[in-house]
């Protein structure tokens, strides 16, 4: 547990001063903001609530943010040779993986927190008569599904980062996996999607965001994301162990 904390702290500090963190976070907030405003305009008078618009604006960009944040986690260590020092330290591979994964999740959670400022604080104040401020429960539920999705992308990105020394190659591969994964997983769901969800059906993973933001919880969805995340993290620690076989 202590090793996870030490690695997590080191990685969060490294993220704090790195361009490879600041630029993608700023880009994410910019495109999220643009998407949010566009959805708000297009859905004037519709049934979509603010927390749904927040979730649906942020979710499509999470795979990109996750891929760019996780690309350096192991690829940089392998390129600089620091992986040798980490692997010769008295820590388990899973602690190393979890520490790094949690640091990326911390940045994403912080970014999502910042992205909440407009819908929760400013928007209701600016247009109080037409918009009902979202409740804590609604925001929490939407944040939960966004974090679950982000954890899947981050776990995939972390695993892919082990395979490369080149960060750009890791990011591109991670994006390919993160794009292909939801399409593969949800292709079947599209077939029986009710009409009410049709407006967001262009990207299947958004259905889960919409459902959670409107209070429609599903344990199977939570299980799916948690299981996928654990699978990628497990695979990541096994890949690290494989490095000991052939360097």
């Amino acid at each position: 547990m202590k090793a996870i904390q030490v690695i997590w702290l080191r990685e969060v500090r490294a993220f704090r001063g790195a361009l490879s963190c600041g630029v993608p976070v700023a880009a994410f907030l910019a495109v999220y903001g643009w998407t949010f405003v566009m959805m708000l305009r297009n859905n004037e008078g519709s049934v979509l609530q603010i927390q749904s618009i927040w979730g649906l604006s942020a979710a499509p960009w999470l795979p990109f943010l996750s891929a760019v944040l996780t690309m350096r986690l192991f690829a940089e260590e392998r390129a600089t040779g620091m992986i040798d020092l980490l692997m010769s330290s008295p820590i388990r591979e899973r602690d190393l993986v979890l520490g790094k994964f949690l640091s990326a999740m911390t940045v994403i959670a912080g970014t999502l927190g910042v992205s909440l400022v407009v819908p929760v604080l400013f928007l209701p104040a600016l247009s109080a008569p037409s918009l009902v401020p979202p409740g804590v429960a609604a925001i929490t539920a939407t944040a939960l599904i966004l974090l679950l999705q982000a954890s899947t992308w981050c776990a995939a990105g972390t695993m892919i980062s082990v395979l490369f020394r080149n960060q750009a190659a890791a990011a591109v591969s991670s994006l390919i996996v993160c794009s292909a994964l939801p399409i593969a997983v949800y292709a079947a769901i599209l077939a029986w999607m009710p009409d009410v969800r049709a407006s967001v059906a262009w990207m299947p993973l958004l259905v889960h965001v919409y459902d959670f933001s409107t209070g429609l919880f599903s344990t199977s969805v939570i299980t799916l994301y948690v299981a996928t995340t654990l699978f990628f993290l497990f695979a990541c620690s096994k890949l690290l162990a494989l490095l000991r076989l052939r360097g």
Binding site: G81, D84, L85, S88, S89, I91
Partner: peptide
């Protein structure tokens, strides 16, 4: 892990 608790290692590339 127990073995690695007892070693200090300096890599040739000084990462």
């Amino acid at each position: 892990v127990k073995y690695r608790h007892s070693i200090g290692y300096l890599s040739e590339h000084v990462p």
